[in-house]
Design a protein around this nucleic acid. Structure first.
Lengths: 236, 236
DNA sequence: TGGGCAAATTAACTTTTATCAACACGAATA
DNA sequence: TATTCGTGTTGATAAAAGTTAATTTGCCCA
């Protein structure tokens, strides 16, 4: 089922089978996207939103020097640009980081869902607010944490998000990002990311190699990143 | 009218008179709050949301050393914690920065609005997504801009937001924040904020003194902060 | 009018991170 | 097997921002 990971294990919002089928039916088309494709540019007018089924996608804002700040990454089960439904245009770009499989959901079908199934509509709203909660955690990361903490926090978050949708066992997970990607997420240079990665390795906290993250000391890594997963609103 | 500034001058979402009256009627109580009061702690269960009528409020996340990162500031017309309506608990604290006048809106009344006036419900959703768009701009600010740029960007944003609700003439506006507040917004120390403020003053870009911001060179300041107001979704 | 106090300001010094420049490694390919 | 290219790694140096500690300013109030 394409929507099986949507809001999976999220507090207060388990979808009924009927709701899940309804959402599934709203997917007009499934596409496979190459890695590193920019799908949406800031300002584009959108008539559909994108449910990520497989792979990793990102949202970013460009600066005047052609550098970019990632403002979100998305894992399977996330509605990548659902906020484009009320907002109509986006304030940032959307891109694939890996090969990605996505389901396109026309906004017209969302209109139908809202009017026919207001409870499901509320859950879509909720999904966009989870995104905002993650934005806030990223603000904390960038504003208050030094380089080691930022990367530790990011790795803990990604582990928790992937675990919630069954893509991490809590210790180890595939993550096909480069150190440059991490630098664009954490507001650092790729050179400094490399140094921090070595430090995490030497302190036996975490190893990130060959597109696999292995967390050796989950408690220690969380402490380094002052990571508290409450903001992810994961069940239990 | 208490709700007169809500979504004022925002693109695609002008409220009809009926909608505004409906929202007005949903305010159960108006309160005046002293400066520097923490109204909501992370994790609190909320049964109402707060419309800011006058003053400045903030949302922040505490770190392990008792320092805080502000994740949002709110100006009159903003629904400070509307996202608590779908989420039920917050991931951060809410506080007043100045003396503030707020309208309390019970979540039960929002339920009624959603079911009886789905169009207005959509606009409430929209309002929470504007918050998220501002979060993303703050991520850009913290992740890609150096100290001068961060402060320039913040001052431009605040000017634009206040101007949209009639509280700035585009050049000068009252802003009762301390340099320490700015440091908690921009992820800097208050000492460094002070140095940057002097620099902005010496470059004749902006003067912030006695709780008044005076923008001497709007274009220059925006350039310094790479500020593009599109993300605020302001009309025109 | 003189304390008291929060906020602003400044200086000296330290730490962190960026910048610049090589070089190494490994997978894909000719 | 040699080549290429993206990615990772390392070192030297510079720049930015943090830390610590005074000092000043402006304002409220006894």
């Amino acid at each position: 089922m394409l929507t099986e990971r949507f809001l999976r294990n999220k507090r207060n919002v388990s979808l009924s089978l009927g709701e899940r089928e309804c959402l599934e039916a709203a997917i007009s088309e499934v596409q496979t996207i190459e890695p590193r494709r920019v799908l949406v540019k800031a300002g584009d007018k959108l008539d559909h939103s994108t449910l990520l089924i497989d792979g990793i996608m990102s949202r970013h804002i460009d600066d005047h020097n052609g550098l970019r700040q990632l403002v979100a990454i998305h894992v399977p089960g996330d509605f990548v640009d659902l906020h484009a439904y009320p907002l109509k245009t986006l304030d940032h770009d959307v891109a694939s980081m890996t090969t990605a499989v996505v389901g396109m959901v026309p906004h017209g079908k969302l209109d139908d869902i809202i009017s026919e199934r207001p409870q499901l509509g509320r859950k879509l709203w909720y999904a966009t607010l989870l995104d905002a909660a993650i934005h806030r955690a990223w603000l904390f990361r960038l504003g208050r944490l030094a380089a080691v903490g930022r990367i530790a926090h990011f790795l803990c978050e990604t582990n928790a998000r992937l675990a919630a949708v069954g893509l991490s066992d809590g210790r180890q997970f595939p993550l096909a990002l480069t150190q440059t990607d991490i630098s664009e997420i954490c507001g650092l240079t790729h050179v400094h990311v490399n140094r921090v990665m070595r430090q995490l390795r030497e302190e036996r906290l975490c190893i990130f190699r060959s597109s696999v993250v292995e967390i050796l000391d989950p408690v220690g890594l969380a402490a380094r990143g002052q990571f508290d997963p409450t903001y992810l609103y994961i069940d239990q």
